[in-house]
Design a protein around this nucleic acid. Structure first.
Length: 284
DNA sequence: GTCCAGGAGAGGC
DNA sequence: GCCTCTCATGGA
């Protein structure tokens, strides 16, 4: 029934619930059910293994969970003298960056602006339920993430009704551009990191933050470093003594300090800040 | 009831 | 270039 993935130093629950993907649903048996592209799978962690149901989903899951990478090399790349990052890694060393489908990632993060993780999740599940291809796995039902064509033909008004608010226009425009063939996200694969950033910024509603989320979580550009309100707070408080930091100075610091796997560092810092008890939420 | 969120774009200066 | 304002919604 289930196939097994070797997954040392891996934390399935943290990875699926760390604000990268928003649709994994916990099951009574401790597994998580959700779609990877158009395949509905159930994933369950057992010590150093991840059990994948059905077995045909094995390679899909391996790729999605990035279990084909050398994670130790990522951890070794981090600046040794950085105690803030070290604490975040120690808090949840098994956290991984996912390798998500391109459109799903772009569309989901277009809905993310000025939204809390819980609400992005609600929108994602609703879009899947209302507009996605219905899938079944035993008793489990779920919807695939709706295609650009499905989103385009649903129309902006329908997307608004599904709770997207002012974000509906951006999602709809992107869906229409992709459905018509005017733009192809796969073309981004061949671009270098800087070119890919420019490519993504051409979508209306995509700024530097969302572009970096898509570069990191979908295109696997592991140096991409999304700066949201959480990360900005962590950086200001823990790396800049609480002072306001000009955006340009911040960007320069990120590139030089965190290095080739800055995106991973960012995810550890984000997850730690957002979920740990000692989370910093000081405000003026 | 109030606060705030994995932002971006437009307009004013 | 850097502010400030607006957009929309519901979980915490």
């Amino acid at each position: 029934m289930a196939a097994t993935l070797h997954a040392p130093n891996f934390d399935l629950e943290a990875t699926l619930n760390s604000g990268q993907a928003f649709h994994w649903e916990p099951q009574a048996d401790g597994s998580f059910a959700g779609c990877i592209a158009d395949r509905l799978v159930a994933l369950r962690q057992r010590r150093d293994e991840v059990l994948v149901t059905p077995t045909e989903g094995l390679e899909t899951a391996r790729c999605y969970l990035r279990l084909d990478e050398n994670h130790d090399a990522v951890l070794r790349s981090f600046p040794a003298e950085d105690s803030v990052l070290a604490a975040a890694v120690a808090y949840c060393p098994g956290l991984r960056i996912l390798r998500q489908p391109l459109w799903e990632c772009l569309a989901t993060f277009l809905t993310s602006s000025m939204k809390q993780v819980a609400h992005i999740r609600q929108m994602s599940l609703r879009l899947r339920r209302e507009l996605g291809e219905p899938l079944r796995l035993g008793d489990i039902k779920a919807g695939a993430f709706p295609s650009p064509a499905a989103m385009a033909s649903a129309g902006e008004q329908r997307l608004r009704e599904l709770g997207l608010g002012y974000r509906a226009v951006f999602v709809h425009r992107a869906a229409a551009r992709l459905a018509s063939g005017e733009a192809r996200l796969e073309d981004g694969e061949a671009l270098d990191d800087a070119e890919l950033l420019e490519f993504l910024l051409r979508f209306d509603g995509v700024g530097e933050k969302i572009a970096n989320c898509v570069r990191l979580f979908a295109f696997g550009r592991l140096s991409a470093f999304p700066v949201d309100v959480w990360i900005e707070r962590v950086l200001r408080e823990r790396y800049f003594g609480g002072d306001e930091v000009p955006r340009k100075e911040l960007t320069s610091f990120l590139v030089h300090h965190f290095g080739d796997y800055g995106g991973y560092a960012q995810q550890y810092l984000f997850h730690h800040a957002r979920t740990s008890k000692g989370k910093s939420r000081s405000r003026p």
